[in-house]
Structures are given as C-alpha cells and as structure tokens.
Amino acid sequence: NQASVVANQLIPINTALTLVMMRSEVVTPVGIPADDIPRLVSMQVNRAVPLGTTLMPDMVKGYP
C-alpha cells in the first residue's frame, strides 16, 4: 500500500506547507503520494485542512 500525505496539524487556508505540517500514512482513500512531500513544501493549501486529513490534489494550489 502506498503512503499518502496527511496533515500533521490544522493547516489554515492559504498557508504555505512546511515539512512539520505533513506526515506520511497509509490511508483510504489514497491522497497525494508521500513521495511528493518535498515538492509540496512552500505550496499553499486552498482550504483549511484539519489535523489528520489526507491531502488531495485539489487542496493544494499548483499541484501537480
């Protein structure tokens, strides 16, 4: 099973992602692959992302 990117904390709308905000976890449904975490750094979320939420491609501005 492939690990996905999961919010490690509440991420407010328009926040630029940092490594501490994300963790990898095997979840269903599958979200953004954990391998993409380095690419996500400094990209902004377009909505508030609660703790434990799987990051989906449509939540991150400019992804992929």
Rank of each mutant, 00 (worst) to 15 (best):
K61M: 12
L10Q: 15
V27L: 05
K61A: 13
Y63D: 05
L19C: 05
V26P: 06
L40A: 00
V27G: 03
I32Q: 01
G62C: 05
T15E: 07
T53Y: 09
N14K: 09
Q9E: 12
A7H: 01
L17R: 00
V45R: 00
G52K: 04
L40R: 00
I11M: 04
V20G: 14
P29I: 06
M43K: 11
N1H: 14
V26R: 08
L40H: 01
L17Q: 00
T53P: 01
P33E: 05
P57A: 14
A34M: 07
M56C: 04
R39T: 10
L10C: 05
D58I: 15
R23V: 06
P57M: 06
Q9A: 12
N1I: 15
M59N: 06
R23M: 05
D58P: 07
L19H: 11
V49H: 02
M56A: 06
V27H: 03
Y63V: 05
I13H: 09
R39Y: 11
P33Y: 06
Q2G: 14
T15F: 06
L17C: 03
T18Y: 03
L51M: 14
T15A: 13
A7R: 00
L40I: 13
P64G: 13
A48E: 15
I37Q: 05
N14W: 14
L51R: 13
D36L: 15
A48Y: 12
V20N: 13
M43V: 07
V26M: 10
Q2M: 15
E25V: 14
R39N: 14
L55W: 02
V26S: 09
A16L: 14
E25Q: 13
L55Y: 00
R23F: 04
I32H: 01
V20T: 15
E25A: 15
D36Q: 14
D58Y: 15
A34I: 07
Q2H: 12
V30Q: 12
A7W: 02
N46Y: 07
R39K: 12
V60R: 00
E25G: 12
I11D: 00
L17W: 02
P50S: 09
T54H: 03
P64L: 15
V27W: 03
D58W: 10
A48P: 08
Q44I: 12
V27F: 02
T53M: 11
Y63G: 04
T18F: 03
L55E: 00
G52E: 04
V45K: 00
G31L: 01
S42H: 15
I32P: 00
